[in-house]
């Protein structure tokens, strides 16, 4: 009996530790480490703000402030903080992949006529492709099969 109680207590404590790791602690970061990592970029930002109009190409590669600084051109990466791509799945794809259910979801959730129209076009394209596939396999391939 005592063993069972002890086992339950240990299990409960272990579960609590598990929750702590995936909850409030999830949103903790080492600010000192981040500040140290971004010291050069902070300095570069101050320099750019103090010298209005200056660009990276004008600063040159020999400037210590621009060491390891690149113009990546990865716009999607740069802007990822502003919006989450999975939530911004184009309405066309909702209609294309989920057909009528996708159109209904866009209609009720987005509440936007243009977006619903795009979902409907996606649904129509998907339906058209399915019809072509059916015509090919059932009417063309199926009839060809009869000749054998």
């Amino acid at each position: 009996m005592i063993k069972k109680v002890l086992f339950s207590a240990v299990l409960a404590v272990a579960c609590n530790f598990g929750f702590a790791n995936t909850n409030a602690e999830l949103f903790q970061v080492d600010e000192q480490e981040i500040n140290a990592e971004f010291a050069q970029l902070n300095e570069l930002e101050q320099f750019v703000n103090a010298n209005e109009g200056v660009t990276l190409s004008e600063m040159g590669t020999d400037n210590p402030l621009t060491a390891n600084v690149v113009n990546s051109g990865d716009v999607l990466g740069t802007l990822s903080t502003m919006g989450e791509p999975p939530l911004g799945i184009p309405s066309f794809l909702w209609g294309f992949c989920f057909n009528v259910a996708g159109v209904a979801l866009v209609y009720f959730v987005a509440d936007d006529r243009d977006e619903t129209k795009k979902a409907f076009i996606g649904c129509a394209v998907s339906g058209g492709l399915y019809l072509l596939w059916w015509v090919f396999w059932v009417l063309v391939a199926g009839n060809a099969f009869l000749f054998f």
Partner: peptide, 30 residues
């Protein structure tokens, strides 16, 4: 280029429509 982001699914729209508190998830597929 194609970018999988709708302007209406950004923090700017969420802030203007008072949906930032839940990152717009109330009006999503979540």
């Amino acid at each position: 280029q194609f970018i999988p982001m709708l302007p209406s699914s950004t923090i700017f729209d969420y802030a203007l429509s008072n949906n930032l508190g839940n990152f717009g998830l109330e009006k999503s597929f979540y």
